[in-house]
């Protein structure tokens, strides 16, 4: 079988001040086009894992290679990885002083140096894609939570990333808005985007993702096919977690 790893992580360890190991010797590879859901109890290290992948968090040990580029101290490598890995946060983190369109185009203008008309076209196209083309000239505070998160997704997509990271993208949303964001994510998965999704939405994890990483205590406890994980998990800790949540 041909494997085509776009993410290779080996021996990743993250120790926070005070000696607490949030990630303990984590190794995993992700293939191009895979949709991986990362689940596990709070404090398991899921966010820390995602944040290490795009350099938001410095690791203490281990190696990370994204699409052939090692995440090391080389500034060029780091920038390449930051632009190739998009990230969506639980709290949206839109730029409140900019219109929706400017939120989307800022990095295009400043990092990719794309000219304004082209930026505008890209922004409008992406807003169409996430279903809110009419909000281009609004400010973030005038949007609902679900709309804000969709703008945040469009903003990340604008850089044309090869990998998208979602850290509890729907956790801050009112229940009636969750599905509009999940739908956008589902479409993205269908288009073949490589996605790492930290989520509490077990329905999404089961139906949309190919693969589950179950984390606990800074380790990947179980790494398997999504269907298998939900029907017949191997590890007792996974079973315990599922029994509590389902």
């Amino acid at each position: 079988m041909e494997t085509n790893p776009i993410i290779t992580v080996s021996g990743l360890t993250k120790i926070f001040d005070g000696g607490f190991a949030a990630l303990n010797n984590v190794s995993v590879t992700v293939d191009k086009g895979e949709v991986v859901s990362i689940i596990g109890p709070s404090g398991a290290g899921k966010s820390t894992f995602l944040r290490c992948l795009n350099g938001l968090e410095e690791r203490d040990r281990g190696q990370i290679i994204i699409d052939g580029v090692p995440l090391d101290h080389n500034r060029k490598h780091r920038l390449e990885i930051r632009t190739e890995v998009g990230m969506v946060f639980q709290s949206f983190n839109l730029f409140p002083h900019m219109k929706v369109r400017d939120n989307i185009t800022l990095a295009l203008r400043r990092v990719k140096k794309i000219d304004p008309p082209r930026c505008r076209a890209i922004a409008d196209e992406l807003l169409e894609k996430v279903g809110i083309p009419e909000k281009a000239d609004s400010f973030p505070q005038n949007l609902s939570g679900g709309q804000q998160q969709r703008v945040a997704i469009a903003r990340a997509l604008a850089m044309n990333p090869k990998i998208m990271l979602f850290d509890e993208a729907t956790s801050a949303l009112d229940p009636e808005m969750i599905s509009e964001v999940l739908d956008v994510m589902k479409n993205l998965a269908t288009e073949g985007m490589t996605m790492l999704v930290v989520t509490h939405e077990m329905g999404f994890a089961r139906e949309v993702s190919n693969r589950i990483l179950f984390m606990d205590n800074g380790e990947i406890v179980e790494d398997c096919d999504a269907e298998r994980f939900f029907s017949n998990p191997e590890e007792s800790r996974s079973r315990q977690f599922l029994s509590k949540i389902l």
Partner: peptide, 14 residues
């Protein structure tokens, strides 16, 4: 909020 710095970082902004 720290999120503003993190979102900028994730987008590749200097």
């Amino acid at each position: 909020s720290k999120g503003q710095f993190e979102a900028s970082h994730a987008l590749g902004l200097s």
